[in-house]
Design a protein around this nucleic acid. Structure first.
Lengths: 191, 191
DNA sequence: CGAGCATATGCACGCTTGATATATAAACGG
DNA sequence: CCGTTTATATATCAAGCGTGCATATGCTCG
């Protein structure tokens, strides 16, 4: 998903400033399946404006600095639908936690436990986010998407809670800086 | 997860060339929770070599071009463990499919169905990948990580299979090129 | 012979991170 | 009650990371 399509998608739900778009995709309703930062959103909005896919109006508000509010144009809607139509690439999932879990045997038990606790907290906060925010989006698909996220996250969370013991048990079994006790893994798989 | 840590993680499991690392993280055992491309892996290996975290030996093989095989050094293991220890950031998940699903109402029913089928195929191939390849990694945590992935993917897959009807039913209900029935915007300011 | 694999490199471009700027409100310390 | 810090809202830019693509080479296999 490139930032262009992302901005169009958000603007398709309603007018917004660059700041608000960032908020939505990084902390709000969209944040559990997309992300983008200031540095890409602002230039993208400018480009979309130049291409006539969004309209821009400046709102002078007393107190706060001027805000540039963007609206999607008809051409923008067309382009957005065109983008949606073409084959989406695979979802992207990157997990530092799983990389760490893969190497559990090298780690200190205490570090593993910390990492697991942190991961649980991350997932829980994500679930809270979905419950509280997704319902606000005025798109028919939002509930469906929210449920999808909730289900995947919940499944992962349950797994971690149920099986964290196995991971913790691995800690320290492959001592890295003690070559005499050379690691002999491959058979630790517990069921 | 930056590419440095990723390369160290792979090399920690055994020696490899840049090509092999790419294969592992993009198509092999590691590919369901990390990714990286040639363009980042090769320069990173060079940098790791300069920093003394990996050693490099050139193998002249007849037929194929020379291969540069990298091994992690003791300093590299230290650095790797150090990286693992420091707090991992949140997992990254980006889904073009969910963005599309969110906007289901704007889409053609046929396009939705195609997208859903494609998504199911993606998930199934990912599951196959995990089943066939993960067991080959010689790390104790690999099974744990594989099961985690399998469970999350399976949960999502079941959800899609069970609820795709609801999504398909939304298609076309928010007619885009008919401005009279266009969705009324300005829902961002929820205060 | 052409397709494809194995191997390696370089570059353009997209995107993120983080610094910087401005202005106003809320909160806190003295 | 004033001054200072902190948070919120807004926007821009430079630097660097990382991807995607093009390129090169030489083998193997159908």
């Amino acid at each position: 998903m490139n930032v262009r399509t992302l901005c169009l998608a958000v603007l398709n739900c309603g007018d917004a400033t660059g700041y608000e778009i960032r908020k939505l995709v990084s902390e709000g309703h969209f944040s559990h399946f997309v992300d983008a930062s200031f540095g890409s959103i602002y230039p993208t909005l400018k480009a979309l404006h130049e291409d006539g896919l969004v309209t821009q109006r400046e709102e002078r508000q007393d107190g706060k600095p001027d805000r540039k509010v963007y609206s999607i144009s008809d051409a923008g809607r067309q382009a957005f639908l065109q983008n949606l139509r073409q084959p989406a690439q695979k979802d992207i999932f990157k997990s530092g936690f799983l990389l760490l879990a893969m190497c559990a045997e090298l780690m200190d038990p205490e570090d593993i436990r910390t990492a697991i606790d942190r991961q649980i907290a991350h997932i829980e906060s994500e679930l809270t986010m979905i419950d509280s925010e997704v319902r606000e989006v005025d798109m028919a698909g939002a509930d469906w998407v929210g449920d999808y996220g909730r289900i995947c996250l919940t499944a992962g969370l349950q797994y971690i809670r149920a099986k964290r013991g196995e991971l913790e048990a691995l800690a320290g079994t492959g001592l890295p800086d003690n070559p005499s006790t050379a690691p002999s893994p491959t058979l630790i798989a517990a069921e």
